[in-house]
């Protein structure tokens, strides 16, 4: 057989052998058998010298072509074999993806904190800044300066916890609303305009039940300036309700009474649970009270250091626990201050 014929035979044998290879090890053995320095092709190529000088270039080209061909076949086969090997590895590492993931230890903010932040964030965009004042207050700040003198029937609206004080001393109480902050904030700003939001803890002398707590949070806002109207209050509150409950929410703006505002108003939104058809939560009215509000009463403006003939302003208040209960469908307010992690871990 000529060298060329021998080369063709080796090529055919190599390709046939390669076809049956399935492992990486066998591939490398094949590579050294045929393409290695001491492989069959290398060995045969040493006999090129025996050929006539005129035949050598063509034979050399032929050797190169066979090498190239076998290299390509090897690369091809390698791809197949590697893919198969990886497939085996994947099969052996396959998991039951329906098993639970590894638990992380994560903590959560109290739902009241989250809703308080939501509310203050919305009002921050309208220029309201947070202002805080003390939780234990004087009767003067909590009532008198807010136009609620002693023996006024409106006092029935706030059942109050009083702190024991020596006889003759000024009455001290747990604030029943964050409204004393209105006076504090006005006095700190007057005669400059003020626009603040007052979040905080409040207390009412009230038997605890699923709907009532002796402790709760409130958020109030107050804006005073030389160009603030009742229509601005309406725009501000409806804007807030749309941010909180989605634009297009139906609202109702109806007269109400608070001693420290005149005119006074209650903002209702269409019940988010029944869509206005009436349910237990909205007491079958189709409406939910969102905020009590009004134009700051002239006497209160005066007590805050503003001349009511020049300045006007509005104030509003709302209860984050109530908003939270509606938002998450919580039916018992007593969980809020229980510290029970079965409750706390239900929220984001």
């Amino acid at each position: 057989m000529s060298i060329i014929d021998q080369l063709a035979a080796i090529e055919a044998a190599a390709l046939a052998a390669l076809h049956d290879i399935t492992t990486v090890d066998a591939l490398s053995a094949w590579k050294s058998e045929y393409l290695g320095k001491t492989g069959q092709i290398a060995k045969l190529s040493r006999e090129l010298g025996t050929l006539a000088a005129s035949d050598r270039p063509a034979a050399g080209q032929r050797f190169n072509a066979v090498r190239t061909n076998l290299d390509a076949a090897l690369a091809d086969r390698e791809t197949t074999v590697n893919a198969a090997a990886q497939g085996h590895a994947f099969a052996s590492e396959a998991l039951d993806v329906t098993l639970p993931g590894r638990p992380l230890t994560v903590g959560r903010l109290h739902p009241s904190t989250r809703v308080l932040r939501m509310i203050t964030d919305i009002f921050a965009e309208m220029g309201f800044q947070v202002w805080e004042s003390s939780e234990v207050e004087t009767d003067t700040l909590n009532f008198e300066l807010l136009n609620i003198p002693a023996d006024h029937p409106a006092r029935d609206m706030w059942d109050t916890f009083y702190i024991e004080t020596p006889p003759g001393a000024e009455k001290v109480l747990l604030r029943t609303h964050t409204s004393p902050g209105q006076i504090h904030a006005m006095r700190a700003h007057a005669p400059n305009p003020v626009r603040v939001i007052l979040p905080g803890k409040c207390f009412r002398y009230e038997q605890v039940s699923t709907r009532h707590e002796m402790m709760f949070h409130q958020v109030e806002g107050i804006a005073v300036g030389t160009n603030i109207t009742f229509s601005d209050l309406k725009g501000t509150l409806i804007g807030f309700a749309e941010r909180l409950y989605g634009s297009g929410i139906k609202t109702r703006f109806r007269p109400s009474y608070f001693p420290f505002t005149e005119p006074s108003v209650e903002l209702d939104v269409e019940c988010i649970l029944c869509g206005g058809t009436g349910c237990r939560i909205c007491k079958h009215s189709g409406w939910l009270e969102v905020s009590g509000a009004g134009m700051v009463h002239p006497d209160v403006l005066r007590n805050g250091g503003y001349d009511p003939a020049i300045y006007s302003g509005f104030a509003f208040g709302m209860g984050p626990e109530r908003i939270t209960m509606l938002r998450h469908g919580i039916d018992d307010i007593r969980w809020f201050f229980s510290g029970d992690e079965r409750f706390l871990q239900q929220f984001i």
């Binding site: 305009p193 003020v194 300036g225 603030i228 009742f230 601005d232």
Partner: peptide
């Protein structure tokens, strides 16, 4: 406002100067 109807009041945005932040 009550006789006009609170629901008929316009909804406006405060045009007052923004207090110092």
């Amino acid at each position: 406002a009550r006789m006009y109807g609170y629901d008929n009041l316009p909804s406006t945005i405060m045009a007052d100067e923004l207090p110092t932040q």
